[in-house]
Design a protein around this nucleic acid. Structure first.
Lengths: 139, 139
DNA sequence: TATAAAATGATAATATTTATCAAGTAAGAA
DNA sequence: TTCTTACTTGATAAATATTATCATTTTATA
């Protein structure tokens, strides 16, 4: 399936691209380039960080993955290119997908002349792990 | 009003803080630290970039302004600390505020154990200026 | 004023991302 | 299968953004 994604995007099939897509597939962590690079090094000791960045940018450009602007420190990547929303732990920065179709109507008067083509909702909260840690610290 | 904001935050009143708050007030551009720094230099040639970062971080920490994670390249700052949404031009990265109170209910089953405390909606679109430029280019 | 705590400014250090380019590789042509 | 070319990789330099350090200066208060 990864092979197809790459071919469909009109890109050459390389082991690096396959490895990155394989790592991203079913990955719910929304990893950063650095995260991906580290994971790659384990099974692919020669891969360059530049290749990770190149690959991610190329895949994003072709619509095969999505870049999520959620972490002020760094870009993070989402293997799911379809529009969806995110649930973010404000403490540990964990990001989970939320698939709900909200109908968000913006009155013409508030559009400021924009032609609106999409939206993205960030829900902020504290994840179960952090809730636990916080309650432990208090006691 | 800026003086009060600073005092309320328990901070010392400095010309630098006043100048930054003054610049941010009524600023709808959601400027970056660099933007603010450049603007400061004009009326305040000795101000350091470090001071801009320090001030912004301090003000954010105290809840006087908001950091918006919208631009993958850099942090941007919003003088309005109250929750609201944003309208982003995907072409020129211009950001406008949208004040609409949406009731976004997340079913318990989709919360993944998170305790949700807030949300932020990004609306994507093309601003009037860019629409114009694009139509000119086509013709 | 004098003093202590806090803030500024200069600059170094770090982190993240992009650019450059020689060498290697994939994919289609012959 | 081999050749050829365009694309890709990997190494590294460069650029950009942010944070840290710390001596000096300034603010707020006594």
């Amino acid at each position: 399936m990864d092979r197809q994604k790459i071919k469909e995007a009109g890109l050459k099939l390389t082991p690096q691209r396959l490895a990155i897509l394989d790592y991203l597939r079913d990955n719910l962590e929304h990893p950063s380039a650095e995260d991906i690079y580290k994971a790659m090094l384990e099974r692919f000791p020669t891969m360059s960080l530049a290749t990770v960045y190149n690959t991610l940018e190329t895949l994003r450009e072709k619509g095969a993955i999505q870049e999520v602007t959620i972490d002020p420190q760094k870009k993070r990547f989402d293997p799911n290119p379809r529009p969806h929303h995110h649930l973010i732990c404000t403490r540990c920065k964990r990001v989970l997908d939320i698939h709900i179709d909200y109908q968000l109507h913006v009155p013409e008067a508030k559009k400021n002349g924009f032609e609106i083509v999409g939206n993205h909702i960030e829900f902020y909260g504290i994840c179960p792990d952090c809730r636990l840690k916080m309650s432990v610290m208090q006691s």
